[in-house]
């Protein structure tokens, strides 16, 4: 029986492995391509040769070095990192709620986070004049947790996922309204910061911010990756997961916390960005042909990074010098994908 078995599943397994490799390779290639493209693009044109020298040899004109290192690189990296974080956050929320349309933006978590950050920002800047990124992150995290708690409370009373999404959208509106309210009555100086930030843009990226983001997101990524096994079990439903040995209470906590951290991170640094969390995991799963977390997690991260970098590029260059709101771009790219997803499901 052995000999008859092995070729069968081994064959299928090999096929799958091949597919994964191809997808990952494609993603990596896209990643590199985007970096290159992004570096190369800007209002100031710098030839490739010089870029390379600046990057690897740290040699070149101070101006150009500044542009590359201080402006473009951080932005690129931040886009990549935060894009990945968004994708992961979305993936976690989808696992948690068992619905592929769940995502931080759509559930209103981003908006709640933003509101909280706005409050803190206005308070802090009003008092102390500055707001360190850590303070903002903490505020964002708090905001994310509060909004998530709210969504959780709602999800207990509603049966339908659709109702949950509607609730999320409503929360989003409410929080936006509050934020707008605050903006109306805030000092001009505060507003500038807030406004710029709230637009959702990577333009404010700097190394310290990016560095912080990288650390946080990096740790979160590892944690999520280590949760791959229970996430896979959880895909079969809470009861089965429990019966297989998953500590459900702890697991759900971990999911929510990690998702909150990731989306708080993004919101704190770049404001609310929509649809990445939904579109990317979906696309990645389709490309890979599987929803196995151990494969999907790294792929989603890469995919998110690529997606965000693409969006950022478009946001920067489409109507140069005017910079588009990145949410706009991600919406234009992501919403059709989500609609397509919905149509497919109903079939």
């Amino acid at each position: 029986m052995d000999n008859l078995q092995r070729p069968e599943y081994a064959h299928a397994k090999a096929l799958r492995r091949t597919r994964y490799t191809v997808v990952f390779a494609a993603l990596a290639a896209a990643f590199l391509a985007m970096i290159i493209l992004n570096i190369n693009t800007g209002s100031v044109s710098i030839p490739v040769a010089r870029i390379l020298r600046i990057l690897f040899l740290r040699q070149g004109e101070a101006n150009e070095v500044s542009i590359i290192w201080k402006i473009r690189m951080p932005r690129i990296l931040q886009a990549a990192i935060l894009g990945g974080a968004l994708a992961l956050s979305g993936f976690l929320l989808q696992t948690f709620f068992g619905n592929p349309i769940a995502g931080p933006f759509v559930l209103g978590i981003s908006s709640g986070t933003k509101m909280c950050v706005a409050v803190v920002m206005i308070l802090l800047i009003g008092r102390f004049g500055t707001a360190s990124s850590w303070a903002l992150i903490l505020a964002a995290f708090a905001g994310a947790m509060i909004s998530t708690a709210f969504i959780l409370a709602v999800s207990r009373s509603v049966r339908h996922m659709a109702a949950l999404l509607v609730a999320g959208i409503m929360i989003g509106y409410i929080c936006s309204a509050v934020t707008e309210f605050l903006v109306t009555f805030a000092e001009d100086s505060d507003i500038v910061n807030l406004h710029g930030w709230s637009q959702g843009s990577f333009s404010g990226a700097d190394w310290s911010g990016t560095g912080t983001a990288a650390i946080i997101v990096g740790i979160a990524f590892v944690c999520v990756f280590l949760l791959a096994k229970p996430i896979g079990a959880y895909q079969m439903g809470e009861e089965y997961a429990r019966s297989m040995g998953v500590n459900i209470k702890r697991f759900r906590m971990e999911l929510i916390l990690l998702s909150g951290v990731l989306s708080a991170c993004v919101t704190a640094f770049a404001g609310p960005i929509s649809f990445v969390g939904i579109a990317v995991p979906f696309l990645v799963k389709r490309a890979l042909g599987t929803s196995k977390p151990i494969v999907v997690i790294p792929a989603a991260f890469l995919g998110g990074a690529v997606f965000c970098m693409v969006s950022d590029l478009i946001a920067r260059m489409a109507f140069s010098p005017t910079e588009l709101n990145i949410s706009t771009v991600t919406s234009i790219l992501g919403a059709p994908i989500v609609i397509y997803m919905l149509i497919r499901r109903n079939r």
Binding site: Q235, M236, G237, K285, G289, S291
Partner: peptide, 8 residues
């Protein structure tokens, strides 16, 4: 009860 197993 039905399971939502996505692509499994």
């Amino acid at each position: 009860g039905r399971l939502q197993t996505e692509l499994m």
